[in-house]
Computed example of a mutant assay.
Amino acid sequence: MKVCVFGTRGFPGIQGGVEKHCEYLYPNMPSDIKFDVCRRKSFVTDNTTYPNITFTDIKNTSKRGFEAAFHSFASAIHAIKTKPDVVHIHNIGPGMAAPLLKLFGKKVVLTYHSANYEHEKWSGPEKLILKFCEHIALKYSDKIIFVNRNQMGKYSAKIQAKSTYIPNGVNKPYKTDKTDFLDELGLESGKYILAVGRITPEKGFDTLIKAFNESDFYDSYKLVIAGGVEFEDSYKKQLDSLIGNDNVVFAGYVFGEKLAQLYTNARLYVISSYNEGFPLVMLEAMSYGLEILASDISATHLIALDKNSYFEKGNFTELAQKINETINTNCCKPSYDLSDYDWNKIALRTTEIYKQLLK
């Protein structure tokens, strides 16, 4: 079986939830399935090879708002030429290319990661375009995978009949004894709060910084935000304006050993998002046994936390109180049941989708 994949910037080592999803999923797929992953050339920095995966690196425009559309149609044309058995598209924006693929008789699987039009960073017209892309993607895809079962429940019986809920997964934690990256950032083990994610408005890092500023641990702890900035320079400047001392650390985009050091030694993990599909970073924090505070949105309830672990999204005063309560209580190192979020299981379920489509 040959499968062409697009809708991701690529992997390995490229920032983004969809990118991490693909990086963990496809190397775990059965070896008799051959994948052709279309990457956006300007993002590629790591040329690691995989036995069952080839990469097609396509030049992309850097113009915000056109990058995904340009890459999607270029990838669709590539798929038409190379004649795979299945085309697997990730997310609703790239799903706009589904009608073109169907015109040429291609079998199309769509993975719906998140309702992008809910993100604050998009303007009104851009949100309308994304909603139209969603309509087209859902209509013309043969099979749909939702990583968020609550999102799947919003659509018609016709859409749900060809849809399956398959959540994100998580790898086993890579716990490390090294602390050289912590030393580089001026961090002390157990004395910082961690958040991981791309620096975009929907992640709610402004709420987190305001809460940290109001907390009792403003001077004695540090807040570490691990994520890179791409197009949202103005939002990063907004975050910088909220910082009152040197105890807020932007670590940049990190992965591998450096990210493992941050997870292993954090006292508390906070997910302050306004919108999420299925927060992969929340699973990662759980795998490291971290206590978690999460904004009260549907995505953070996909794996239920204790009711005291939630705060109203955007409510930095409540979050500050939760931070105080959690850190003032002896760390309990919770244990989470993550057995349903094994990438091997998820790979097998995805394989079944392909097989159903080709029967």
Rank of each mutant, 00 (worst) to 15 (best):
R149P: 15
D46I: 00
N328H: 14
K139P: 07
P167C: 00
A266H: 06
L358A: 12
S273K: 09
F55T: 02
W122L: 04
L305Y: 11
K359I: 10
S72T: 06
K359S: 13
A115K: 13
N60C: 13
V86N: 09
T326D: 00
K313Q: 13
R149G: 03
V249E: 02
N245F: 07
D85R: 05
K258E: 13
H21M: 14
Y50M: 04
D216W: 00
R149I: 12
S62K: 14
I92D: 00
R349Y: 12
S295H: 08
A76D: 01
I53R: 00
T45W: 00
K158H: 10
T8P: 01
F205A: 07
Y174E: 13
M96N: 07
Y253W: 12
Q321I: 08
E232N: 15
G289C: 12
G197T: 05
G314T: 00
M282L: 15
F316C: 14
L305E: 09
S163Q: 06
P279E: 08
S241P: 00
Y112K: 08
K106G: 08
F311V: 03
A260F: 02
N308I: 08
K81P: 03
K20L: 12
E214M: 11
G190M: 09
Y263F: 06
C331Q: 10
E232G: 11
G105H: 09
C38P: 04
A97G: 10
Q238C: 04
G197F: 01
N91I: 01
A68H: 12
S141E: 08
K41C: 01
K154T: 04
N213I: 02
N116L: 13
L110M: 10
K158Q: 14
E230M: 12
H119C: 15
I89F: 01
T300R: 04
R9W: 11
M282K: 06
L130A: 01
D306R: 11
I199E: 12
D177G: 05
E184F: 13
I297V: 14
S335P: 01
K345W: 02
E19H: 03
I92G: 00
S220G: 06
A320C: 06
S215L: 03
I323N: 10
Y26P: 04
A266T: 13
Q151Y: 05
D32R: 10
K162Y: 10
K313I: 05
C38N: 07
T200P: 04
E318K: 08
T350H: 05
I58E: 01
G289L: 09
H88N: 09
Y117Q: 12
Y165V: 06
Y24E: 13
Y155P: 10
G65Q: 03
M282H: 02
K178N: 10
E184T: 14
I292C: 08
G256A: 11
N330G: 13
Y117K: 11
K172V: 01
D342E: 09
I33M: 03
I159Y: 10
G314Y: 03
L293M: 07
K102L: 03
E214C: 13
F11Q: 06
T164M: 09
L319T: 02
E23L: 05
F311R: 04
T49E: 15
